[in-house]
Computed example of a mutant assay.
Amino acid sequence: MKSTIYAALLCGAAFAVSSCNKHIYVPNQVNVPLLKEKYEFKGSVTPSNLQAAFAITDHIAVMANGQYLWGFSYADPGNNFRDDDGILHDNNTRGGLVEGAVGFFQPIGSAKKAVFDVYAGYGSGHFKTLTGEYKSDNAVLNDYVIQNRFSKVFVQPSFGFVHRVVEAAFSSRFSFINFYDSNIGMKAFENQATEQSKYMKIYDKSVVFYEPAFTVRVGYKYVKFQAQLQFSTALNRNSFYNNNTYDYNNSFNEYFQPVNFNMGVAVDLAKWYNHVRR
């Protein structure tokens, strides 16, 4: 099972480099608080994510996350389509999400240098994306836009090492996404009726994503540099397209960004820094 999941992640990443993407879902950064004590607060900010977590007891915490992608701009219709999309970014998708969660955390060992936590939460969002056919200065942008709304339920266990100078963690997030309220521009699937029909199957049922992430923070005490590498793959993509003559893996993944890399700043307000030994 694990080998199948990681193979899907690698295949999705490789396909993303060479394809013209129409991303209707870009996973947000995984919030990995690694809290240790009551009343500890940890927040982070990146160019596209704002996240926070607060421990209300010695083992229970709440978190809130926000994401926004700037994507294309209506103010510059002649230049807002760029076909240099790569594995880590998408210039032609705009939107984001908000979500909240409640979780349990447990420091491990007498020195409490390791932390296990698990969060469960709910969110909702909206994305719009330009299809690859939009390349003309005279084209009407809205005719080539695909947009949708979605709701999200997620479960996220993490395990990490926490020190005053460095933190490192691995997280496994499982996200259950329900897409709805689709709006397709009149030319987004022009002369592609079959492709449009297959795309609409995404709205037939929940899509389950496995979204593992590796997070590293380096700094001193209260402020650290943060970087996160995240993967995302749809676990039930095969159930949508069962025609053996159709490359459902590539077509399905075309609408979901398979890899994210985020860098930013993390802030941790905690009393334990004043008591830990060097």
Rank of each mutant, 00 (worst) to 15 (best):
K2H: 12
Y6M: 04
Y6F: 11
A7L: 09
A8N: 12
A8P: 00
G12I: 01
G12E: 02
V17A: 13
V17L: 12
N21Q: 14
N21G: 05
K22P: 00
I24F: 02
V26Y: 03
N28E: 10
N28I: 02
Q29Y: 13
Q29L: 14
V32D: 11
L34R: 05
L35N: 08
E37P: 08
K38N: 10
F41N: 08
K42R: 12
S44E: 13
V45A: 13
V45T: 11
L50N: 02
D58Q: 12
I60N: 08
A61F: 13
M63C: 10
M63H: 09
Q67H: 05
Y68S: 12
Y68Q: 09
Y74H: 12
Y74K: 10
A75K: 13
D76K: 06
D76L: 08
D76V: 03
N79D: 08
N79K: 07
R82D: 13
D85W: 02
I87V: 13
D90K: 03
N91F: 09
N91I: 00
N92S: 07
N92K: 11
R94Q: 13
G96M: 11
V98G: 15
E99P: 10
A101G: 15
V102W: 13
V102M: 12
F105L: 10
Q106D: 02
P107G: 08
I108L: 14
S110D: 15
A111K: 14
K112W: 04
K112Q: 15
D117V: 02
V118D: 04
V118P: 01
Y119P: 00
G121W: 10
S124T: 14
S124W: 14
G125W: 11
H126W: 13
L130S: 04
L130C: 07
L130N: 05
E133T: 04
Y134W: 08
K135F: 09
D137G: 01
D137I: 01
A139R: 01
L141C: 06
L141V: 15
L141T: 09
Y144N: 07
V145F: 12
Q147F: 06
N148P: 04
N148L: 15
R149K: 15
V155P: 00
P157D: 12
S158G: 05
F159R: 05
G160W: 11
R164P: 00
V165L: 15
V166T: 11
A168E: 03
A169E: 02
F170K: 01
S172Y: 09
S172N: 06
R173S: 09
F174N: 04
F179Q: 04
S182L: 12
A188C: 11
E190T: 07
A193H: 13
E195M: 03
Q196W: 08
S197H: 10
K198H: 12
S206V: 10
F209W: 09
V216G: 05
V216D: 01
G219C: 07
Y220G: 09
V223A: 14
A227W: 05
Q228H: 06
Q228E: 11
L229V: 05
L229Y: 10
Q230W: 08
L235H: 03
F240L: 14
F240N: 01
F240D: 01
Y241L: 11
N244H: 07
D247E: 06
Y248S: 06
N249A: 07
N249F: 11
N250E: 07
N250F: 04
Y255F: 12
F256D: 01
P258T: 04
V259H: 00
V259F: 08
V259Y: 02
N260A: 07
N262M: 02
G264P: 06
V265Q: 02
V267E: 02
N274L: 05
H275G: 00
